[in-house]
Design a protein around this nucleic acid. Structure first.
Lengths: 217, 217
DNA sequence: TGACATTAGTCACAGTGCGTGACTAATTCG
DNA sequence: CGAATTAGTCACGCACTGTGACTAATGTCA
């Protein structure tokens, strides 16, 4: 038997959080676990992952991507030998967890989960950070139009460190990923911010991808 | 059922080659395929991958690492719904393929293989290139001491493009990965080259990994 | 109303990185 | 000997990056 597990991530304030559900088995050593399902014969693993994510969340996440297969001997609630981990991103303002059986936990303050799933969470975080400057996945966590401060906050959340404003905008400009709209948002105190939309342009020259990696705060 | 497939890579002259075996089923549409085995209950997928690699090669490869799980509906010789792909690196001077049932094919000139395995090969090449500047996997393809020209050749092979000598050495120096021995190798014509060994030093400062990515030839 | 806090956005400098071509060095071959 | 071949270094110019300071536009509160 093979299980498909999903690491659902969403921003909560300034922290990145992961969705856990209460363990079905009340005698389980760890009382929380990642949402998972056994693979059905007629489904692909991608389908199963998407369905599992929808089931736990009550809505479709913005992105579902494979992380890796975990086939070591670490314990998994399904008892299966092999599990395939997927990572899913959910925009901010995530629906409230259904009942008391699912909850969001900050990634840097997790309760005990079964060891194989613990490895999956770590792998998912690594995968997000590695892919962040290859693919524009950060935009999946934002509404169609957004301020650059919002965008920077998402990057900081996913990378787990602060970025410098000027560097961030310079690199963003060089990557030709966004274009300004003519709308402005005044959000309480402070100067209003211009709204942008995601609009990737053909990159000229540069063999490199979009490297945000070096941005230190 | 779950299959474990291995993409064995080795340098052959100036080309990167992959090991294929003749299809067991003579009526199969594609006559060559990647080495694969069904997962046994008592083994981890890593164990199975290592064993499969040894079986096809007749020796242990220098590195075996997971690429990803492939669970789409593309055809696979095992008929399984899900396959986990591993990539394996074999140092140059690989043992001659056993009989006529296994052979090395240049990655840029492959015969037809089952479609899921074709995707695995592409994925393995992408994975090698992506990990090349994160982990020192190039050294696995070389003997304990080597010349910098040999090392550069490996990088060019794995990245699939030429690098500029001066840039390569500058970046290598900055990464503190090798140290010179006091031996020199005179290899036919031309000036003798100094031999180096792999000896990673603690990297000071620099939040970045070892970025060889930008080296253009 | 006016000082201040707060957030957005830009600029400019200095240091480092990187692509590139030209140069020197040591060997073999004829 | 001189040409060819491979190893190894240097230096220039441009681009990129980290950084702090600056201006701009709003709300808050005395």
């Amino acid at each position: 038997m093979l299980s498909v597990d999903v690491v659902l991530l969403t921003p909560h304030g300034r922290r990145l959080t992961v969705l856990l559900t209460r363990a079905a088995d009340p005698k389980a050593k760890e009382r929380w676990e990642l949402p998972w399902e056994p693979l059905r014969g007629e489904e692909t693993i991608e389908d199963t992952a998407a369905r599992t994510a929808r089931g736990a969340l009550g809505a479709a996440p913005a992105l579902v991507e494979q992380v890796a297969a975990f086939g070591d001997r670490r314990r998994h609630p399904s008892g299966s030998d092999v599990s395939v981990a997927f990572l899913a991103l959910v925009p901010a303002g995530a629906p409230a967890p259904v009942g008391g059986d699912t909850a969001w936990f900050p990634v840097d303050d997790l309760p005990a989960v079964p060891p194989r799933q613990r490895a999956m969470i770590d792998g998912a975080l690594q995968a997000v950070r590695a892919r962040l400057d290859q693919a524009p996945i950060a935009f999946r966590l934002l509404p169609p139009t957004f301020t650059l401060s919002q965008l920077q906050e998402i990057y900081e959340l996913l990378l787990g460190r602060r970025l410098h404003k000027a560097s961030f905008r310079r690199a963003l400009h060089a990557a030709w990923l966004v274009e300004p709209t003519d709308e402005w948002r005044s959000e309480g105190r402070g100067r209003p911010a211009q709204l942008f939309r995601y609009a990737p342009k053909k990159r000229r020259g540069s063999r490199r991808g979009v490297r945000f990696e070096g941005l230190a705060g």
